[in-house]
Design a protein around this nucleic acid. Structure first.
Lengths: 274, 274
DNA sequence: TTGTGTGAAACGATTCACAGCT
DNA sequence: AGCTGTGAATCGTTTCACACAA
């Protein structure tokens, strides 16, 4: 991270753990919903349920922000909304650019939740000259040539990349050179950026692959469980493990060297003894 | 949260840490790129760089899968591609449905990386009768009424929700009742699902809020540094971050609202420390 | 009595550092 | 000599359990 010295030298006040930061938006959303229903206070238990976490975690999280609750009562909804908003930096307005106005970029531009809380789409940028000037989400698409000027003129520090993978690294470099220091990357690519620039990535296929892993594990357990039973009768409803086909064959030959340690073909490769 | 109750009970089947699972797709992508360039072997150092992690972590991750490398040499690219694919369950083909074919749903349907590796869009489903039959990404949109039949006929176990927030919970319930056991949720809502169902969420506004937090922290440090430095010229080059538009202004509006507790009813003395 | 706030314990992930194989 | 595989140390996060305030 910080080359040289640590980020937080003297001032020790702001020590909010990353895991906590990542949950604050969740709490904020739940609180906003309560606020809209004019609920005055919530307990950690109720709020935790609404946010999908457990209450001990929530209380610990809030304890990093300060003591904003009242023992025996709970938390004041409005006050907490404000405190979390402030902590997240949402009491100011962040101009954002979206680069790459294809299907996804357009969908993001149209996404309402964007403007709703603290963020404002300052510009839509695309490399295709044919797109230039075309309105998307009520805003004309601008050409990549003007990227630097747009960033600077609008004081943009957050960029969203929705380009094809091949263009993402270069786009990120231009954004950063122009002053952007936070990037949300939707392109399926690992961006390499200098210190001090934050990147978060959103990747559909990675998420699906993680789900597939667990799905496969479930299927395996189910099969193991079924092994003791007899009937293979596919009951209604409950996930009767999909019936996938199409297998990828293992590479032959080349793997010979590594393969000696006990044919790891398509079945339980017992790992992890102790 | 999403993975609420993924605890491994007694069934000591697989010992791969969740954090490792989440990185496997990253390694796989890097390896696939190497494979396409016909690179035969790769060291942990090289592969780690390509995947954006450090090499110790990568080696540890791979150690959970087994001993697939060769000391003094590195890893066989093809073999590793196969092993990771198998571990992730990508040697089989997973049919997926997308529910909610708005801007985002359509973008997802058109997303190429989908079909490329292990996943196949089995159906597009939308609640709007006007959408029914309309082709999106070369595939007719089907109506929600047929959701259960579609799931069952295609043996779908993974569902993608791209509906508005208000519809997501109900859609998830129908998906699950019909046999889906993994959900990728793009709706900005916390889904509550029974044990055994995996949910992963992708949420644009949460990601932006996390970035805003760090962005704000940077701005604060920068200001502090500038204040103490007074006149020392900082080296040029490294991101002189664009100043946020309406930056460090005290949050008058919202703060006031929260402070005076201005709801229709109810009045709690909102304390307001600095 | 209720429900927050928080030390302390438990757990999980990352990093270190080096033994051991090629 | 080079690079993997892995115990051990470290660091961060979650959970427990209870003192304490309202």
């Amino acid at each position: 991270m910080a080359t040289g010295r640590t980020h937080r030298p003297a001032t020790r006040s702001r020590g909010i753990p990353e895991a906590t930061v990542a949950r604050l938006p969740l709490y904020l959303r739940a609180l906003t919903a309560l606020s809209e229903r004019s609920v005055p206070t919530v307990s950690s238990e109720e709020l935790a349920a609404a946010a999908g976490v457990n209450s001990a975690k929530l209380r610990k999280d809030f304890s990093y922000l300060g003591s904003y609750g009242t023992r025996g009562v709970g938390y004041d909804v409005e006050y907490l909304v404000y405190q979390i908003s402030r902590e997240l930096g949402l009491t100011q307005d962040w101009p954002v650019v979206i680069v790459g106005i294809g299907n996804l970029g357009a969908a993001l531009a149209n996404y309402g939740g964007f403007a709703s809380r603290g963020f404002r789409v300052a510009a839509l940028i695309d490399a295709d000259p044919a797109m230039a000037g075309k309105p998307v989400a009520g805003m004309p698409v601008q050409h990549t040539d003007d990227l630097e000027k747009i960033i600077e003129d609008n004081g943009v520090s957050i960029g969203v990349i929705a380009t094809p993978a091949g263009a993402a690294q270069q786009v990120s470099e231009r954004l950063i050179a122009a002053g952007v220091t936070s990037i949300l990357n939707f392109a399926p690519t690992v961006l390499s950026v200098p210190d001090g620039v934050d990147v978060r990535k959103v990747d559909l296929s990675i998420e699906l692959q993680i789900l597939a892993f667990h799905e496969q594990r479930k299927a395996g357990e189910e099969a193991a469980a079924a092994a003791s039973d007899a009937g293979v009768g596919a009951g209604a409803g409950t996930g009767t493990g999909a019936a996938p086909a199409a297998a990828v064959e293992p590479p032959a030959g080349r793997a010979a060297a590594a393969a000696r340690k006990g044919g790891p073909e398509g079945d339980v490769p017992a790992v992890m003894p102790a």
